[in-house]
């Protein structure tokens, strides 16, 4: 619409210029320029009276806050449980809590990778900066985590822990600019469900995993392009 308005005004300018060139009589000149101005006004009016996406009416639902649904952030079930590889001497098998072993073992504050361990956790890939295990795991409460100031934080609140270092991501997350979500954008109509940090990032190796492209369009006549993939 704006395009038309500018076209019309351009046409008016050109017409006016032509009038100046062509008309010798002052009165006719004035008449013509008058019609010109009318045309501009009209086009502006029509442009604004038809659909105008630039200036929509004031938001209404912002005021209707009362029935707002929640933004539900998924949380871990609780502390992790370790699946036993085989039955223990007492013949028990299944899952056990971290504290099962760690309550009777002295913490080594220097450990930075599983390579240094000989009893358990072998093969655990760790690729999360230069952190030590006890930077995040709580030496006093094996079924909880610890913040940098030494205070205890539950596994369910793992995001608090992550946010200590990843404040930028946490801020983005708060504003929907980091992390996946489902449900409703309009909280007056329904809730929104969001992932938490460790849904997507393995805390021991937080880089987002590689994926394999599973779905590609099959266009007519672009088969050749598919075969040699060397599109510079």
């Amino acid at each position: 619409m704006k395009r038309i308005a500018s076209l019309v005004s351009a046409a008016v300018v050109v017409t006016a210029a032509l009038m100046v060139l062509l008309c010798l009589d002052d009165t006719t000149l004035r008449d013509h320029s008058h019609t010109g101005r009318d045309a501009v006004t009209q086009s502006v009016v029509s442009a604004s009276s038809e659909s105008n996406p630039d200036t929509p009416s004031a938001p209404e639902q912002a005021s209707s806050v009362p029935s707002r649904h929640a933004v539900l952030i998924r949380r871990p079930e609780g502390p992790p449980l370790i699946e036993l590889a085989a039955a223990d001497p007492q013949g028990r098998s299944g899952k056990v809590a971290c504290s099962t072993c760690h309550s009777v073992r002295k913490p080594n504050f220097q450990t930075r990778s599983a390579a240094a361990l000989d009893e358990f956790h072998q093969g655990l890939t760790f690729n999360h900066g230069t952190l030590t295990c006890y930077a995040c795991h709580n030496p006093d409460h094996s079924d909880a985590l610890r913040l940098a100031d030494g205070s205890k934080v539950e596994y369910r609140d793992v995001m608090t822990l992550c946010s200590q270092c990843h404040a930028a991501q946490a801020t983005s997350f708060q504003h929907g600019a980091h992390g996946g979500m489902n449900g409703f954008w309009d909280l007056s109509r329904g809730p929104q469900r969001k992932n938490n940090c460790i849904d997507c990032h393995d805390p021991h190796e937080p880089r987002f995993p590689k994926m394999v492209v599973g779905f590609k369009p099959r266009d007519r006549f672009s088969e050749a392009g598919k075969e040699h993939d060397d599109h510079e």
Partner: peptide, 18 residues
């Protein structure tokens, strides 16, 4: 009031709608 299908499907959370 719901989110678009492409956004819900995005595993990286790259998409934002509102």
């Amino acid at each position: 009031g719901k989110l678009p299908a492409c956004l819900e499907a995005c595993p990286t959370g790259a998409r934002v709608f509102g």
